[in-house]
Design a protein around this nucleic acid. Sequence first.
DNA 1: CGAGGGCTATCCCTTAAGGGTTAGCCGAAC
DNA 2: GTTCGGCTAACCCTTAAGGGATAGCCCTCG
Lengths: 222, 222
Amino acid sequence: MTPITANDTPASLLIIDDHPLLRRGVAQLLELEDDLELVGETGDPEAGIALALELEPDLVLLDLNMPDINGLEALRRLREANYGGRVVMFTVSDHEEDVVAALRTGADGYLLKDMEPEDMVRQLRQAALGRMVISESLTALLAEALRNQRSAPSTPDIHSLTQREREILKQLAGGLSNKLIARKLDITEGTVKVHVKHLLKKLNLRSRVEAAVWAVQEGFDA
Amino acid sequence: MTPITANDTPASLLIIDDHPLLRRGVAQLLELEDDLELVGETGDPEAGIALALELEPDLVLLDLNMPDINGLEALRRLREANYGGRVVMFTVSDHEEDVVAALRTGADGYLLKDMEPEDMVRQLRQAALGRMVISESLTALLAEALRNQRSAPSTPDIHSLTQREREILKQLAGGLSNKLIARKLDITEGTVKVHVKHLLKKLNLRSRVEAAVWAVQEGFDA
DNA sequence: CGAGGGCTATCCCTTAAGGGTTAGCCGAAC
DNA sequence: GTTCGGCTAACCCTTAAGGGATAGCCCTCG
């Protein structure tokens, strides 16, 4: 779907953060890197959303704690507006709830502001390439959150479906909407719908709910 | 529960791994550290469990892939036997399912065998002190798993639903649309929607698909 | 080489789903 | 006897879902 930055063109980056000094710091940091280009910056969340939709940067660095609407809300609105680039939360908060909420809302990363500059650049580079980036110090936190969780997807292997259809079904059975599946598999929602349509027909089912139930009973989800 | 190792006494460590060479490697590594003491080692899971209960080491390093019973099962049995020390999984597998399963079963850490020796020692030390340790390369994986998490800060439970809501959920999990449920229960579709809305809220789920999957896993339709 | 299958994608259209709000009726609890 | 929870129902509104059709690209098989 959204083309990941090629190696030969710099990744475009937008920073939305209400601390001017910090913005300047990041800007200066990025000036030294020829594969990362800061294409915009603002301290106003509203303006930031508009900028993101206008500039379509590869990556948005989004402060979690801002006046008016917070970063999470901004993230939600970006996703709703079908902004397809990467969004990395950038904050001082290492509270589990914030991290979890951000990731659930569709953040592609969560970086703490106290990172070392070199690490910062490295992580941003990875993020622009499509990898999820998380500050290392949050690892234990994530593990803890995960630990309190139930059930996880596992290996399928059912007949008439193609590989892709099985993948779609697996996600579907996980309760994801077509839009979220699309985002996760990096294809358009329309394509997901095509796959869903096909697998429903092949399995002779009438809705995604039936498909989900069938998949679970078939052991797609453990 | 079990007192965390004090600074002045070495942390005791037991390794259960069916690779003798690897056990020797870890043993040698720990000989150089005066705050970590290897008190036992075995390649047999059964014997390992007995040893852990006998020696009560501060930390058990447990291989995930072993013959007979696997590491996960061993972990489960250690916990059931009220072994209160730390258990860190030690494996080559970086598959999401394995990591997630281990953490859910109560592992205090998950280390990959391809770690650098210095990192290994550092992580074991942290683990003995009670910190959860996870190989850094698994961070993105954890975040992804977390992201896919559905449901509930508090375990959703069937008992919070009214009789009618349970009935609706049962039909829903059978793959019926609101309209069909209405027809079947002889109420209007609007009313069905109200019930669905309420049960989704009570169970903290985001869609009927999630509700259906949950219900099936909970053994509703059977 | 040509055919077919798999994956992607788009357009158009209809129906389903879900959130918010308000409200009437009934039975049980206070 | 009034309040509260459960069940019913309707309103409005937005988004999600699914069906039909078409098509480009790539790979494989014959």
